[in-house]
Amino acid sequence: MRLPLSWLLLGLSLLLTALLLGSLATGPLPLSLTESLQALLAGETSQLAPHKLLVVQEIRLPRTLLCLAVGGILGLCGAVMQGLFRNPLADPGIIGVSGGAALGAALAIVLLAPLDQQLQAKVGLGLLPLLAFLGGALTTTLVYLLGSRQGGTSVTVMLLAGVAITALSGAAMGLLSYLADDQMLRDLSLWQMGTLAAGKPADMLLALATLAILLLLFVRDAGPLNALLLGESEARHLGVNVQSLKRRLILLTAAGVGVAVAIAGMIGFVGLVVPHLVRLLCGPNHVRLLPLSALIGAALLLGADMLARTLLAPAELPVGIITALLGAPFFLWLLLRGRRTL
């Protein structure tokens, strides 16, 4: 059943508003929705307790906005990858960016831990997000070079190169895990499972800016992506510069996923499941698919983060575990539902 775009936008806007208020009220310090709204809109004359204002405005609001931004980036990049590869099983990690980012983070945690701590103390920025982003960028560049040939790029070769490099990154991470001590191994494991607890206001601003830029640039390419669904030859006949389109979308996706992974760690299934759900609701037209994937990705990750904070309260689960628990059964249902056409 495909719903009108206006209904979907209205429903998602209401859902995101409810989730935002619920996220502000969720945590070890119990707050009502009314108190959360008061803290969100509070001025200097607010009657709310100062510690509640601090918790909402300085801790929960930045984390909530970070959830929205990272979820939006992953959902949006997943929709682009599935359209570019014309494969419903594609996700942002298919070009190796997630594996490269994970390896960069592992290097920062295991081999460069003293330098990372010094930088954190002096400038407030550690090596982990920087090396994670550089690892994803370098991996994507390598995959693109391997897939390049005279006259263009081969999507198939890039796909296979991404799989191979992801396997190599996994092997290198296994070696680093073997060399790590107990604390390093715990830090590495938590990062691999994904977490938004360590996000800073600077991370939030970077993620929001990245989402806005990607959404603007990707929506501009919605028409060419629709043409590409017909096949590369047909898209060329319709006037699409296929090689330029592939290069641009791959590099932008790598940048977006690199930022998301560097900030929040490895969060799976959002970029894989969300585009499927959006296609069920509104069809394959990328003019609708791209913005709705960003909205539903944001809602999914925010809901998962709320569950991560409440299921074992006052302890907190890594959000990547929640997205896997939610996403894997849904994806299996999609496979069973469409097995005759896959």
Rank of each mutant, 00 (worst) to 15 (best):
D182P: 03
M193V: 06
F133V: 10
I267M: 04
V240K: 12
I321F: 09
L146M: 12
V274E: 10
L205G: 01
G283M: 04
A197I: 10
L217G: 08
L196W: 05
R2M: 08
W191V: 08
L37R: 14
L175M: 15
L290D: 08
T341C: 04
L146N: 06
G93K: 10
T195W: 01
L300S: 04
T253M: 13
L107T: 14
G199Q: 11
L335G: 00
I321H: 10
K52E: 13
A202G: 02
P62T: 07
V70E: 11
L19Y: 05
R247F: 10
F330M: 07
P224A: 11
T153Y: 02
N241T: 08
A171R: 08
A222H: 00
G258A: 12
P284T: 02
S36E: 10
Q150G: 12
S233L: 12
L130V: 15
A235E: 08
N226V: 02
P275K: 07
L307T: 08
L3R: 10
A197W: 11
S233R: 15
A260C: 10
L251I: 14
V261F: 07
P88Q: 07
I94L: 15
L214D: 04
V257G: 00
L216M: 11
L332E: 02
A79H: 02
G147A: 02
D91V: 01
A25W: 03
A294C: 09
G151V: 07
L37I: 06
L20V: 13
A105H: 05
T141Q: 13
G100K: 05
A106E: 09
A262W: 00
G22S: 13
L230R: 14
E316A: 08
L41W: 10
W191D: 11
R339G: 00
M266F: 11
G265R: 01
D305I: 13
L302E: 01
I322N: 07
G320P: 01
G265Y: 00
L214W: 09
L280V: 09
Q243L: 01
A18N: 07
D182R: 15
Q57D: 09
I267E: 03
V219K: 11
L68M: 13
I95Q: 05
F269I: 07
A202V: 12
L48T: 04
V56K: 08
G96D: 02
I263G: 01
P284W: 14
L112D: 02
A212N: 05
V259W: 07
S169Y: 00
P28N: 15
H237T: 12
Q243N: 14
I296M: 15
G258Y: 06
L138N: 02
A137N: 03
L76N: 13
L281E: 09
S244G: 15
H286E: 05
G194I: 05
K52Y: 06
L295I: 06
S98G: 08
S46M: 10
G27V: 09
F269C: 06
A108G: 12
L9Y: 00
L74Y: 11
